[in-house]
Design a protein around this nucleic acid. Structure first.
Lengths: 116, 116
DNA sequence: CAGGATCCCCAAGGATACTG
DNA sequence: CAGTATCCTTGGGGATCCTG
């Protein structure tokens, strides 16, 4: 049994899901395997709304998975996001998740592949 | 871009999360690596409420990840749940998720390990 | 025994407009 | 450029009781 900030997680699986669960966290993390500007991230993830993206980034940062670096403080701002050392330990898992999705799409007849 | 039942998934990662995301799906799946009776599952997962467990099991079944087998139709019923062939392809990933959680708990100073 | 039915609530997430 | 602020919707999940 694990606990973070007085919230309980009954097993290691649920603990991992606290970090990468939710609708977009894993997607954002996998895009941050390469360090990226906020605006680049937005362009790559148009399906995630501004508000949600920035909330998720904050959570990921406070969870210690990513780092946020501000390069100028006079507008226009430049902000980089990247995986922290801790976040980098997730890379194999993230790649596994993406890979399984691809294979599942190929196998399952419930999934259809559509052009963007 | 993928689509299931008219819902859009922009990348393979989000597709995987559709299957194992949510608060309990991965936890339930990992417990079903060994075939199990409904009542056994309930005992092992006391933190998941009845309603949620049965809803999640239904979803997992309709997603094709698990199979449900009824052994008697006169009460008392006996029902087994197990990973389907498709669901079994998730096993390495599920183990990876559980494993990362353990290591994260050991490393992170935000996580505390508490007795049940 | 293995769930379904009901009621409820909160938090995740969406849309849009605005700002240091 | 990189976010906040505000408002709103929805559905995931909890608690409890009931049933084939």
């Amino acid at each position: 049994m694990y606990s973070i900030d007085n919230k309980q997680f009954p097993c290691s699986t649920s603990l991992t899901m606290k970090y990468i669960g939710g609708k977009w966290k894993a997607v954002i993390l996998i895009h941050l395997i390469k360090k990226k500007r906020y605006s680049e991230l937005r362009k790559e993830l148009p399906m995630v709304t501004e508000r949600t993206l920035s909330l998720q980034l904050k959570e990921l940062e406070s969870d210690g998975l990513i780092t946020r670096t501000v390069h100028t403080n006079k507008p226009p701002l430049k902000v980089d996001y990247a995986l922290s050392e801790f976040g980098q330990t997730l890379i194999p898992l993230l790649k596994g998740i993406a890979e399984w999705g691809k294979e599942a799409a190929a196998k399952s007849d419930q999934v259809t592949i559509v052009p963007c």
